[in-house]
Amino acid sequence: MTIELARRRGEASGIDALEWAPRWTDSPDADAYSRVTDPERFRVLQPFVLAVLADLEAEFNVRREPAGTFSGGAAEHVRWSDPVRLVPADAKAAPLTVAFTSFPGVLVRFGEATDVVLPFCGCDACDDLVQHLVEDLRFHVEALVTGGFAEWHDAKGAGHRFAVGAWGTNSSFTPSDDPPTISPFRHDWAPWPLRVTASR
């Protein structure tokens, strides 16, 4: 799939017809960091992420299953519901788990322990534009399904990397002096297997 097509995943939700204007032309007001105006604008991310899952199911050899327990990471810090997981037929490829947050928004877990919460904050100062969050999620998903996603956790901390050719790379490492709460691991995840269409 080309980057142009990857940037259209989830379009059945109609989200690409929507656009939000920036709140600020200069620095935000001091009290904007503690103010949230119209959080409902983020609810459109929920049907969007469901449409992304449907597109992925049509394109790749995966199975959908209830996620059941969704613990650790960002799941400990947001109220979430209705978790569902896509599991690739190839065990070397990373699963994708999504849940709705009460903000409202979405919590997405890539692989074993890499969480992305959209919106991450939602305050007026951050002024997250939904169209930018949509682009971010499409980028992360494309990295996942094309084998451009890696994650690791060891005594020094936790890190991840998302890479999609000319689209770019996003990486992060969070150092930690605390004793690890999970066993060390490193996953350089494989691409998702494509769904084979039977010939007629």
Rank of each mutant, 00 (worst) to 15 (best):
Met1Asp: 01
Ile3Asp: 09
Glu4Trp: 05
Arg8Ile: 05
Arg9Trp: 08
Glu19Cys: 15
Ala21Val: 14
Trp24Pro: 11
Thr25Ala: 09
Ser27Lys: 11
Ala32Arg: 03
Tyr33Cys: 12
Arg35Ser: 00
Phe42His: 05
Val52Leu: 01
Asp55Thr: 02
Arg63Cys: 10
Glu65Lys: 07
Gly68Pro: 14
Phe70Gly: 04
Gly73Asn: 11
His77Thr: 06
Arg79Gly: 07
Trp80His: 05
Ser81Ala: 05
Val87Pro: 13
Asp90Gly: 08
Ala93Asp: 02
Ala93Thr: 00
Ala94Phe: 00
Leu96Trp: 09
Thr97Asn: 00
Thr97Trp: 01
Pro104Tyr: 12
Glu112Pro: 14
Val117Ser: 03
Leu118Glu: 12
Pro119Asn: 10
Phe120Asp: 11
Ala125Asp: 15
Asp127Ala: 09
Val130Asn: 15
Leu137Met: 13
Phe139Met: 03
Leu144Thr: 15
Ala158Glu: 11
Phe162Asn: 14
Ala166Asn: 15
Thr169His: 02
Asn170Ser: 07
Phe173Asp: 01
Pro175Leu: 03
Asp177Asn: 09
Asp178Thr: 08
Pro180Val: 09
Ile182Ser: 06
Ser183Gln: 12
Arg186His: 12
His187Arg: 08
Pro193Ser: 01
Leu194Ala: 05
Val196Tyr: 06
Thr197Ala: 03
Ser199Gln: 08
Arg200Asn: 06
Arg200Cys: 02
